[in-house]
Nucleic acid binder design. Sequence first.
DNA 1: TATAATTATCTCGAATTCGAGATAAAAAAG
DNA 2: CTTTTTTATCTCGAATTCGAGATAATTATA
Lengths: 150, 150
Amino acid sequence: MANDNVGLSLKLFIVLTRALQSIKKRIEEDIKKQGINLTEFAVMELLFHKGDQPIQKIGSKVLLSSSSISYVVDRLVQKEMIRRRPCPDDRRITFATLTEKGRAFMEDYFPKHEQAIHSILAGLDDDEKAQVIEHIKTLGLHAEGTSTDK
Amino acid sequence: MANDNVGLSLKLFIVLTRALQSIKKRIEEDIKKQGINLTEFAVMELLFHKGDQPIQKIGSKVLLSSSSISYVVDRLVQKEMIRRRPCPDDRRITFATLTEKGRAFMEDYFPKHEQAIHSILAGLDDDEKAQVIEHIKTLGLHAEGTSTDK
DNA sequence: TATAATTATCTCGAATTCGAGATAAAAAAG
DNA sequence: CTTTTTTATCTCGAATTCGAGATAATTATA
């Protein structure tokens, strides 16, 4: 269980970066045909599966800064996919809510999206995917834990 | 060797996206202290290890569009890390070349960079990394091959 | 050789994201 | 009940990347 091959780590980083770039590109191609991008889709998916969310909570879920979410929400509102709904109890909070159009879109498109990802990731079988998921999770958690303060 | 778990594919995509985001963030933190970013570093590393390169070739190696490389090269020239050198044989071509400052920087910093990545990726041992590399390569290649034209 | 096609680089404007700071509201502290 | 702190959202400007198209040089074709 050696762990001293520095070059191997570099290679892993490069391979991950390139593969994910390819994967993302394919997935985004698919979504862009619908007139939205990956970030916008992620926000809509969150609302679709978890119900209305405070804007701030969306940011932490889809890993965007507060300024970026404002922008994404604006775009989705322009596209009439979601709307802002003020929270009656706490006037600091604004909920994002799918419109009818947004819900209809997700009901139609989400399964297709999932299927597209499945095709794009078909290079591995289920067992291999499960294995990679575990390993990558480990990597991610360790990286999270690694601060600059070594 | 089943391969029909659509949800598993979606999960793999999400796990990959998040882990790589964490990893990149850590690595970039480290490099930014040096006053350059990951893209700029990638360009300098290419020149450092492969020698002078036509600007267009840099783009294909570090996966940037031609317009983006022009911009990155500009920044590195401003920082006096590289310079543009016209090709005498083919006047369409401009080489990017490390300056003395750029070379000195890489000689000092590259080993530290490699070591930093190694620390950040220390969540897995060498065998596991090798395994992940193989799997991710497979994924990437398949994704590359997957066009929209199914 | 003139013409067309290709190649390398750059310019410009748009898209996306971020960080810093503003604003407003709610909660905590005194 | 006033003051301070925290929380949620937004505005603004900067950074980074892209695509489309411009320019210029080279190569291939007629």
